[in-house]
Amino acid sequence: MSAVTIYHNPRCSTSRNALALLRERGIEPQVVEYLKTPPSRDELQRIAAATGEPLRALLRTKQPEYLEQGLDDPQLSDDQLLDAMLTTPVLINRPIVVSAKGARLGRPLERVLEVL
């Protein structure tokens, strides 16, 4: 199997469950604790493109910072959203699993199976 990467927050139960799901299937992914090592702008753009969804789908809308930074404004550009995600990585939704087949946000958890 090709390399698999999980953008992971060990404090998040969904993220822990996604990591366990990968390991149950015999996959030892590269684990990126994105709060400690945030992805670059280019990486975030590539991940979003690989999901096939708009960048906005990778935003964690339940974080207080989401509203505090006015990210609920539908007129914001992808560049503005990227800036917010880069300066406040907790806004990046998780877990995100990336493989040669694409990328999926693991919400619901079963979506990660689509790229394995």
Rank of each mutant, 00 (worst) to 15 (best):
L109A: 08
A84N: 04
D83M: 06
E43M: 13
D72P: 06
R111Q: 15
Q45S: 10
E65C: 01
I27H: 10
T87W: 04
P89N: 10
E33W: 13
E65Q: 09
L22W: 01
I96E: 07
H8G: 09
V112K: 07
L22P: 03
I47G: 01
Q75F: 10
E110T: 14
Y7I: 01
A3P: 06
A49M: 00
V90I: 15
R46M: 07
R94D: 06
A49F: 02
T51Q: 00
L59G: 05
L21S: 13
A18K: 14
D42E: 15
S99I: 07
A50R: 02
E65I: 00
V97Q: 11
R46Q: 07
L67P: 03
G26D: 04
Y34Q: 06
S13K: 09
L91A: 08
L82M: 11
P38E: 03
I96V: 14
P38D: 03
V115M: 01
R16Q: 12
Y66V: 01
K36T: 15
Y34P: 09
R56W: 06
V97W: 08
M1L: 15
V98K: 12
N17F: 13
L19W: 07
A103W: 00
R111N: 15
R11W: 04
P38K: 03
E110F: 14
P95N: 05
P108D: 11
R111D: 14
V98W: 12
K36P: 11
E68D: 13
E43G: 08
I27R: 06
N9L: 12
R56Q: 06
M1D: 14
A84V: 05
L116F: 02
K36E: 15
